[in-house]
Amino acid sequence: MSNDDGNSIFDELDSRLDDFFADDELSFDESSDIHSDEMIIDSSDEPKVKKSFPDTQSAKFHKNPQGPLDTLKVIVLEMDWELTDENLNKYLEEIGRLKNQYKDDRAIYLFFKLHSSIGTYMLHKKVRAHPDALKFLYQVFNSLEKVTTKNLSTFEKNKMILKEVTNFKNLKARMFPNSYSSVEVQSFVPEQPTAAVKPDFSSLPDDIQKEINDYIEREIAQKIEALKKNFK
């Protein structure tokens, strides 16, 4: 380092500091409250609004699971904190048990099928999973809770499962944009091999198939109407 360099840094520094600390153009009210503009983080501050813990964090599920989904809920909450092979396997095991328990209720059974598909996918992919996959899992769980706890008609239940099946389809399209029916899809949906873009609903009961078809027709009609409006 040459002397010139040394001088130049001194000069530069002096000039910066003189600019910064210059008194000109500054008005300073010495009597003003010096604390007024500060952002004070006072450790003694009480929270303005006291909030109760959300239901989802209640410990009651851990202590004494009672409802049919309580064990599953405990596992889902655990997964929300930390995703591990252990809790994903526990999750799939519990889904397997519930699928068996609800094999006669087609709508609820389909919910569990969605759960096991996405759970298997998460177990295989883990950190490489699509960010929306876990969101979808929680969303399906919330719908499932509604279906099992509220007194819904078969029509309403079918409507909810249909909505989630459509969401699942959309999710798969986002996860595998280039090869929708690729091996990868098959590998995590072993129980529901997809027939490319058009899902195969033939295994569903007639009334659900009818619901699905009606729903799709209504959706398409709405979309067409919306498009027409846009082009007017």
Binding site: D37, E38, I40, I41, D42, S43, S44
Partner: peptide, 9 residues
């Protein structure tokens, strides 16, 4: 920028 201060009561 703001001055940050962590104070006791």
């Amino acid at each position: 920028s703001e001055m940050v201060t962590v104070k006791t009561y």
